[in-house]
Design a protein around this nucleic acid. Structure first.
Length: 463
RNA sequence: GUAGGUAUAGCUCAGCUGGUUAGAGCAUCAGAUUGUGGUUCUGAGGGUCGCCGGUUCGAAUCCGGUUACUUACCCCA
């Protein structure tokens, strides 16, 4: 049988893992620096926890888990299962008889579920970070995986926009340390609601933002064409025109929006929030990222109600979205706990990895093929046990030491191993060394070697 | 869902308008070198040319189908 893994999933070898852990470590360190504490949730959630939170398209992408042991069901239940199965063949249909569990689609919804279940023992505002894989039944493409890691930081139980500012500061610090030139786009769902209100097209808000978002791809005429195809009236399109043309600095955009939304209460609230963020950005000493108001940013997830974020790399040819996030005023409400507003961001590690690979941003230190400093090599069985003793002594000094486990005919095999793993020192033990209680220490980079005592070896190797 | 592309050795790929026994580089193993790796040299092993069918005296090559992978659209991290 030819081995394979499901499409959209990947193995990570030691080379990839070092780079991945480099990213994880930076993010984790910053999360903790900003006061977030870790949690983990199960890979599987009850499917009812997940459905209805991600929009129509998102729900289709949830990985469902078939109920186990359905073949052991009683006969009358089997009849039900057959009916349910037939229904699910005809249309998108969710049957709890067939599948009551699903792999998590993101980390935010499980987090909200966790908060509700642990409400009584949490201290609010509750700040948590979470680094775990999520699954999406998407068609894999470049930068799109079916299993990928998200690194989320959320704070729940606070309405304050200070949280948004702190998140921006954390993005700046994180992307700065990863050396990724990043452009953060932000918007506010209240603005979008306001626009829909002004246009009298509350149900078309997604279509409108999707169309405007394509401006740089299909041009103004294309946008207008798409809008009318989606059933937006000519009059509404005309009203919308200043927004299609919207450009300039963040404050110029705000001025246009103010005019546009002056009849919409929710729109005005959105502007107020955006202005607060823009006016206070300077207190954050943002030094790395670019921040840009983008009213076409919509984001598919249903639960966002306020600020929304998205980040892309601002260099190279491969620039997928590498971070997303926003404020959700009532995600916990669905689970029965009202009045808890939350806001958070999610770093997409796998795409960050791809971007960093393209821009060659990984430092040399994370490209080592081994962390071992010295390999103890030997000629025969007697020397082997002596080496075993030596490596354990070396390790008490914190020296990363390995012993080649198999007695081989030629010692060159052991040198080859050290060479391939880029181990800088090899200590050779033969009859002579055993008798004199010394070690022949070879420096693999220079090719030179000298006979030394254990103490001398430790001195040399520790440098 | 829609539209392209690819499939040949463990890996990356050649293989011309169909013509004997399908090649290269890397990797692997052995030797040159019985106390020494990275360089060099010599040799060896390794393939149902994704699968099924068709055309033909003859198919890795042409045609049809199928599967897998991949890219773009949509949407997303």
């Amino acid at each position: 049988m030819k081995p394979s893994i499901p499409r959209g999933t990947r193995d990570f070898g030691p080379a990839e893992m070092q780079k991945r852990q480099y990213i994880f470590n930076i993010l984790k360190t910053n999360f903790q620096l900003f006061g977030y504490m870790p949690i983990e949730t199960p890979s599987m959630e009850n499917i009812t926890t997940l459905t209805g939170k991600y929009g129509e398209e998102g729900d289709q992408l949830i990985f469902k888990v078939l109920n186990s042991r359905i073949h052991e069901s009683k006969d009358d239940k089997k009849e039900l299962l057959k009916r349910e199965f037939n229904l699910s063949l005809e249309k998108s249909y969710n049957s709890e008889a067939l599948t009551e569990k699903a792999l998590r689609y993101d980390l935010t919804v499980p987090f909200a579920r966790y908060v509700v279940m642990n409400h009584h023992q949490l201290t609010y505002p509750f700040k948590r970070y979470q680094i775990q894989p999520v699954w999406r039944a998407d068609k894999p493409q470049k930068g799109r995986y079916r299993e990928f890691y998200q690194c989320d930081a959320d704070v729940i139980g606070s309405n304050s926009l200070i949280n948004e500012l702190e998140l921006i500061a954390m993005m700046d610090k994180s992307f700065s340390e990863l050396q990724i030139p990043a452009r953060i786009k932000f918007n506010n769902r209240k603005i979008l609601s306001g626009i829909a209100e002004v246009l009298n097209a509350t149900d078309k808000i997604i279509d409108i933002t999707v169309a405007i978002d394509k401006l740089d791809k299909i041009g103004k005429e294309g946008v207008i064409k798409e809008l009318s195809e989606k059933g937006i009236t000519t009059e509404a399109i005309k009203t919308l025109e200043p927004l299609i043309d919207l450009s300039g600095s963040n404050s110029e955009k705000v001025n246009v929006l103010k005019q546009f939304l002056n009849q919409s209460e929710i729109g005005k609230k959105g502007i107020e929030e955006i202005e607060f963020l823009l006016n206070n950005l300077n207190t954050l000493t943002i030094k790395h990222i670019k921040i840009e108001l983008d009213i076409t940013l919509a984001r598919g997830l249903n639960y966002y109600t306020g600020t929304i974020f998205e980040a892309k790399a601002d260099a190279g040819t491969f620039t997928p979205s590498i971070l997303g996030g926003g404020r959700y005023d009532d995600l916990t409400g669905i689970f029965g706990l009202k009045g808890l507003s939350g806001v958070g961001i999610s770093f997409g590690v796998d795409r960050i990895y791809d971007v960093m690979e393209e821009l060659q941003l990984f430092p040399k230190e994370v490209n080592k093929s081994s962390s071992t400093t010295i390999l103890m090599a030997y000629f025969g069985e007697a020397e082997q046990l002596h080496c075993l003793k030596l490596v354990s002594q070396l390790r008490t000094f914190g020296i990363h030491a390995e012993i080649y486990p198999d007695v081989v005919k030629k010692i060159s095999k052991q040198f080859e191993y050290a060479d391939k793993k880029q181990i800088p020192f090899v200590g050779v033990i033969g009859g002579n060394e055993m008798a004199k209680n010394t070690i022949m220490l070879k420096n693999m980079n220079t090719g030179t070697q000298e006979e030394v005592s254990l103490e001398q070896l430790i001195e040399i190797v520790k440098q």
